[in-house]
Simulated scan of single mutants.
Amino acid sequence: MADHDMTGMSELDASFYRRPVARVARDLIGVTLLFKGAGGLIVETEAYDHADPASHSVRGPNARNRSMFGPPGHAYVYRSYGLHWCLNVVCGSTPGAAVLIRAIEPVVSIEEMRCRRGDLPERLLCSGPGRLCAALGIDGSCDGHDLTRPPFSLSSASTAAQISIGRRIGISRASDVPWRFGLAGSAFLSRPFR
């Protein structure tokens, strides 16, 4: 796939993130996410807020989750199972809400992503939160970073996306909450919607 044409797209500003977490999670579908110039279209997200038993913020701030209680529009990056970095977008009108970026469709600097992840088919490069962080080179040093400034770039979708909605995956609490959003029909999802 050729590198994506970025003309006509505008950067998301801080006001985009100061809205209810489920709304932000839905509206991030189709947004272009770049980190140090590599990335693609966000095709899958999950929302979590401070009252959510599945959220890292449900018991209040601590050393691991402090970025979730920071300003909207910043990154919350944590390590899952001690193995994989996961990128979240802090958002909402009350502290403790974030959107997990579960998958992107790789579009820009695909060969650079393959250098980090191996010679995989494009659909497997970034289909999962740990895979996309590995492909883009996102790690714990990005925790708390302002997403409206380099090395991050999030740009508005050029057209309205058709959205699939379903239950969140990979969690044991509140898994029935329909706060997983995806680009309908995308081959780049971490898991298909049912």
Rank of each mutant, 00 (worst) to 15 (best):
I171V: 09
G37D: 10
M68P: 07
A160R: 12
S127R: 02
V177T: 02
G170L: 09
S186G: 01
Y76H: 13
A54L: 05
S158T: 15
E11P: 10
D49M: 03
A134M: 12
R173A: 05
P61F: 04
H145N: 14
R173K: 15
S158F: 14
S155Q: 15
E112W: 09
Y48F: 02
S141H: 13
A187Y: 06
A161M: 11
F16R: 08
G39A: 09
T32E: 15
R102M: 07
F193M: 09
S186F: 01
S156L: 13
V177W: 00
T32S: 13
R116Y: 02
R123G: 06
P151A: 06
R123H: 09
A14M: 11
S175C: 06
P178Q: 04
G170M: 13
E105Y: 01
S55K: 15
P150F: 03
F188H: 12
P61T: 14
A174G: 05
S158K: 15
L33S: 03
L41V: 14
G39K: 08
N65C: 01
R102Y: 04
R19E: 03
H84V: 06
G170F: 04
T7V: 04
L33V: 08
P20K: 03
Y17H: 09
A38F: 11
R26S: 09
P151Q: 07
A161Y: 07
R18H: 08
L33Q: 05
G82Q: 11
P106Y: 01
D119L: 12
F35W: 13
V89A: 01
A2Q: 15
G82L: 14
L154S: 10
G8L: 10
I101P: 00
P151N: 08
A75R: 13
F152H: 13
I163E: 05
F69L: 11
D176C: 03
R18K: 15
L83Q: 10
S80L: 10
V24Y: 00
L100K: 11
I101K: 11
R168G: 08
A51H: 06
D139M: 05
A2T: 15
R114K: 13
E112T: 11
M1P: 13
G140Y: 05
